[in-house]
Nucleic acid binder design. Structure first.
Lengths: 225, 225, 225, 225
DNA sequence: AATGAATGAGCCTTCATTCAT
DNA sequence: GATGAATGAAGGCTCATTCAT
């Protein structure tokens, strides 16, 4: 009753599951879903070749689970409202949004292979993507749109909000999706994962300035003439 | 056309090569390098299953060739200096750069599956990427840096130019790398490939405003008048 | 029923055994020995996956047991001398023999999946067949031979008795072994299991007439008058 | 043009196909479809493990082909009208029908593993059975019914014709389906395949007498009284 | 030069069985 | 006594590649 009625088998099962989720995340991040072999995943988890089928049904079952868990963990560890008060200024909201997003996709921490797997999912969507979009990505997109609306005013056309949101996300994901090129272009530059704050700072400033492009050129600002 | 009874001549050989490059581009763009089967590529090219090995050594040989050709063709068709006079204003240079870049990666034209294949190459680099970076990507990156330098002044730190360049490219590639998510988030929106001008317009405006963030806020304030 | 708090006693053990024999009979009859999976059998018996190995050693152990029990039960429920007086006429004995045989192999009752399993055993004998032949089939065969002898006279050659016996059994088993074809040939006909009496009637009449072929055509010709 | 344009590759292909059909027939007859392994079939055919997939798509493709070919060859070699004149007496037609049927299912010749495979198909039908029934079995069944009609008169109920036909076929198939039991019951008896004529003789006589059971007990035949 | 039949390594999956608890 | 997580052998199938022609 105290939670240890079957301490060993249950624990062993959970440990194997855990190990498979971890090695699966690693292998999927390294070589992608199709190139990943169940043998390699099991080998790294010190598990039998049949373990994946036993615990997750099949390879795609493990993959879905890995993806879902990573998405969940990433959003828990790096919430996009971290440290924000309810009525924080939209510029501050944007800064936090950008930094947490960068952290999620670039953090080299245990479960933050998230970025690579997500990048692969973009390029070669699996059945898991639909769920991911509806459960994780769409909420983020809506939050970003809301921030944009506060920055640009409630009457800003939806299309404009959307374009600005995409410009922000595009800047962020570039560091995730194009790592191989960045490394080849600037081999001496420190890894982007180590410059998250710097990148967040830049993207925030760039974007806040960028959206000004859509400020209604109202009456004021005589200086501009 | 000449007197050869069979088209077994080198013309036929060249035609097969050509057909393989075309069908290879299609298949690689559709399903990626690893999921592509040589049989399917040969089938579409009306060629023998051994044709790829015969003409390109092996599957990766065909792939490299496809990639290199696409890169070359894309830059020929959509040069990043299209219609520019030598001393065009940097803002105009940026606009042209962005539009031609978008055209290269989004245009659904014959050989402009380029975007999808490049996106795959980012996520899962093959040996072909090194060559691509040095021959095609680095020149583009340097051109973009040069434009940024003209926009921000010759004394702007290289790191700043680089960050701004990445912000521009990130915005562009987002529409290429994240299509599957964009389609799921906004199923009713017209395909991005049909809105290239609109996107180019937005990204240019957003970026020109964005880089203002780095204008030395010194005296020039007045100089603008 | 007694004071044991858990049904973990030998009664529970016996119940699991029983359940495994039942579900095993079902599954073996449905899909055959090789296609049957121990997991499915255990699942239907609400038993552990290791239960078969625990109770019967291995899968073949359960199978043998199922076969032996079915054979025994089938012969108990449908004895080939049902309702016969010791000195019944041989034609009557044959009728009863045929009907009880049909019942054993066609009756859809609880344990009378017997027919399907036996049919499989004929086509793909397992080690269990030897025992089955010596314990169940040979006695039946001898009884049938005895009936034939009474029908055809004590001097009838053994080979003739044997042939006639096989003709009888062949007619019976046809309805068991060839169900799939019968159903496809005559889809509208009622299931043979529902026409046992009709079939018994036919086979008996046909066979009694058939064996007449071996009546010594000697003097008796006249004696028949 | 003379049929040898590509003598070698074509011939090699055909030889491999042929060898696979032969070894497939053997293995399927020996252990059944499900127990047969493609590896074993290919090994016996001196072919690669991928040969079955290459030539027949998959395992079931080979199986269907084997079944169809056997059925065709068996009916060609042992036609059920062998040596019959158009207006042969029905008793003679029945004799020939029975003997050719026995030959098809018992003949140990190269391709006459037919019987065993058919027996398995009865017990555990595969998708191939439907085609077999409509193309081969049904025509036989109809021919047998026609013979019965001639034996018993045109007014005989269809149900009677059907029952008598089944009695005939049941007697025949018994020697095919129940070999394992026959061998165990009468180990000293010569193999049934060597007694085809004897068996045909018996079954014909038994059945001709058997169907008399359904002769309308018309006026004539005073002697019977 | 060009073919296509054949190859064999390797993949995912299934399943009866075991063994620590 | 009974469990169920774990095992590992084996199966069908795919695919890039080769080689005799």
């Amino acid at each position: 009753m105290s939670g240890s009625s079957r301490p060993n088998s249950s624990a062993a099962q959970a440990a194997t599951r855990r190990a498979l989720l971890d090695s699966g995340a690693d292998v999927f991040a390294e070589v992608g879903f199709h190139n990943a072999t169940t043998r390699e995943i099991c080998r790294r988890a010190n598990a039998n070749v049949a373990a994946i089928n036993y615990h997750f049904g099949d390879k795609t079952g493990l993959y879905s689970e890995v993806l879902a868990e990573q998405s969940r963990v990433a959003r828990e560890r790096f919430p996009s409202t971290d440290g924000l008060t309810a009525n924080a200024a939209p510029a501050e909201q944007l800064r936090v949004f950008i930094r947490s997003f960068l952290q999620r996709v670039l953090s080299p921490d245990l479960h933050a292979r998230h970025g690579r797997i997500m990048a692969r999912e973009m390029v070669e969507p699996t059945a898991a993507l639909d769920r991911l979009v509806s459960e994780a990505i769409r909420p983020d997109a809506e939050r970003l749109t809301a921030i944009m609306r506060r920055l640009l005013g409630p009457k800003t056309p939806a299309a404009t909000l959307r374009l600005c949101g995409m410009s922000v996300v595009g800047q962020i994901l570039f560091y995730c999706h194009c790592q191989p090129v960045i490394q080849r272009l600037f081999p001496d530059q420190p890894a982007d994962a180590a410059r998250i704050d710097e990148l967040a700072q830049h993207i925030t400033g760039f974007s806040l300035a960028g959206v000004q492009n859509y400020r209604t050129p109202v009456a004021p600002r005589r200086a501009q003439r």
